[in-house]
Structures are given as C-alpha cells and as structure tokens.
C-alpha cells in the first residue's frame, strides 16, 4: 500500500503542477482561437520568449523569481500588441493554410533568433532557494516549487474566472466568442477586444513560460517541443471553451506524468495515443455540443 500511495501522490503533485503550467501556456490559444479563429501556431513562441526574458531579468538584474515572471508577462503582453498590429491583423481574413504557414514561419524565426542570441543550449537558471527546499505535507516531503505552482495556478484560475464571468470585459469577450457579428452589432468593439485578448493570452503564455522553466527547460526548440501539448489541450477543450481548458490541461499533465512514471518505456506516446482516441470519439472537443 505504501509504495502505491507514494506513487499516486507523486503523480498527483507533479502531474497537476505540470498541468497548471500547460494551462497557463495554452489558455491564450484557447481564447484567441475561439475569438478570432486564427490558427496561431506561434503562440508557443511567446511562452519561450517570456521564459527567456524572465531568466534574463533574474540573472542580470537580480530580480526575484516571481517579480521577474510578472515583469516578463507584462513586457511580452505589450510587445505582442505590436506584433498583433503588424502581422496578425492581416491574418484574420486569410485562409487557414496561410495562417498555418505564416505562424509556423514566425515560430521558425523565433527559434533561429533565440539560438542566435542565447546559443543552442538549455539556459542555465536556478529557482530561488525558498522554492528548492522541501516542504513537509504531513504524509510526504515535496519540493516547495511544485506546491507553489499549484497554488499560483489556482489563484490565476480564480482571477481569470472573475475576469471572464464578473466583468464587462469578460461579458463582451464571451459574447464575441459565441457570436462575433452579433456582438459587433450590439456595439462591442470586437477589434479592440481581439487585441486585448491577444495581449492577455500572450502575457499568460509568457508567465507560464517563466514560472514553468524548471519543468519545461528553456531552449531554442521550446516552441516546437511544447506546441503539440498546447494544441492537444486546445483541441480537447474545444475552441473558446475557457472553463474546460483548465480541467483538460490538468488532465493532460496528469496523464503524461502518470505514463512517464508508470511506463517509462512508452513515455510521451501515451498522451498522444489518449489524444488520438479522444479526438476520434469527440472530434470537436470533449465538451462539444454542451452548454458552456
């Protein structure tokens, strides 16, 4: 019984914290897809840039970890507004093929630039000491970092829930996701909403990339490595389904962790297999056809 419990609590803790980071990375994609129907494969690039910026702030300016993550989210969010204006506005009307090509192109350019500036290796960075030490949960000792990420994730989910359900901005956003032209007809400035949602999504991805660097190591190929997991989350959650995305992200995190822990030989492929089966079962997301 004892080893079973140890294994289960390991999977729960590591899987959930991993899932929380996945949620931060992909929630912006769920939002922009639902709102703009833009296939933004370059979304993962914002997460990578966020991680690099945060680590840079920590290593050169000596900023504390959480402050650096917040600052990086802010910087990337503001920067993404510029990119949205320059690149994405022309993509809203483009065909899906053009969107895919353009955003894959941006992803290649980001990876090549990250390599050029920071080199091909994983960026050396360390968590602050207070997150590295063990935390006694009563039944087992765990790394404080994992618990911290889970707590941070729960706080973030609550904040986002309040933002989407309890504010004007959220109400408009939900209206635009459900029916874009009807929302525009009632006087909602959908274009501005697009820009804000895009910046919010990029900032969240950057925050996830910064907070999660100890789980998803920063390297030039980061956008390619984690894009698939993000797409899996988005696709299972269904476009624009924000409520489902948190649950799905945690589910993906737990399944992937459990598979790697219990079947090290099979590794990554279990999560792909589960995705393929679930997609065949429900091609439009797990919650398609239900009231959101």
């Amino acid at each position: 019984m004892e080893p079973f419990f140890a294994g289960a609590s390991f999977i729960a803790l590591y899987g959930i914290s991993y899932g929380i980071v996945l949620f931060m990375l992909s929630v912006g994609l769920v939002l922009t897809l639902g709102l703009m129907r833009v296939v933004n494969l370059a979304h993962a690039a914002f997460a990578a840039i966020g991680g690099y910026v945060a680590v840079g702030l920590m290593n050169t300016l000596g900023m504390p970890f959480v402050a650096a993550a917040l600052a990086s989210a802010l910087l990337v969010g503001v920067g993404s507004l510029l990119i949205e204006r320059l690149v994405y506005t022309s993509l809203y009307q483009a065909s899906e093929l053009d969107q895919v090509l353009m955003t894959i192109g941006l992803m290649f350019l980001t990876t090549a630039s990250l390599n050029l500036v920071f080199g091909p290796d994983v960026v050396p960075a360390r968590l602050p000491a207070w997150l590295m030490q063990g935390l006694d949960l009563g039944f087992r000792k765990v790394q404080t970092y994992r618990v911290f990420v889970i707590a941070l994730g729960l706080a973030l989910i609550t904040l986002l829930w309040l933002l989407f359900e309890r504010t004007q901005f959220g109400a408009r956003l939900r209206a635009a996701v459900d029916n874009r032209s009807m929302a525009a007809a009632t006087g909602i400035d959908v274009r501005r909403l697009y820009s804000l949602a895009f910046a919010l999504g990029s900032a969240l991805a950057a925050f996830g990339g910064a907070i999660g660097f100890a789980m998803l190591p920063l390297e030039p190929l980061y956008p390619f490595k984690y894009l698939t997991l993000m797409l899996i989350v988005v696709s299972l959650a269904g476009m624009g389904n924000l409520r489902a995305s948190a649950g799905v992200a945690v589910l993906v995190g737990v399944v992937d962790t459990a598979a790697r822990y219990l079947l090290p030989v099979a590794g990554a492929f279990v999560v792909y297999g589960v995705f393929v089966v679930l997609t065949l079962w429900r091609p439009n997301g797990l919650f398609a056809g239900r009231v959101r």
């Binding site: 895919v100 696709s235 492929f269 792909y272 995705f275 393929v276 997609t279 091609p283």
Partner: peptide, 27 residues
C-alpha cells in the same frame, strides 16, 4: 477518421498522428 474533421482540428489530428507514428517508430 481524419477526414471527419476540417480546418484547425484536422491540422491538429494530422500533426499529433504524425508525432504518434514518429514516437512509435522510435520505440
């Protein structure tokens, strides 16, 4: 199965199926 979806879901299914096959070949 693949052709049941269109647009973005189709892109994702083909992408993940490709990755799945690649992992399978590695294993």
């Amino acid at each position: 199965f693949i052709l049941r979806s269109r647009g973005l879901p189709l892109i994702m299914v083909t992408l993940v199926l490709g990755l799945f096959a690649f992992e399978l070949a590695n294993k």
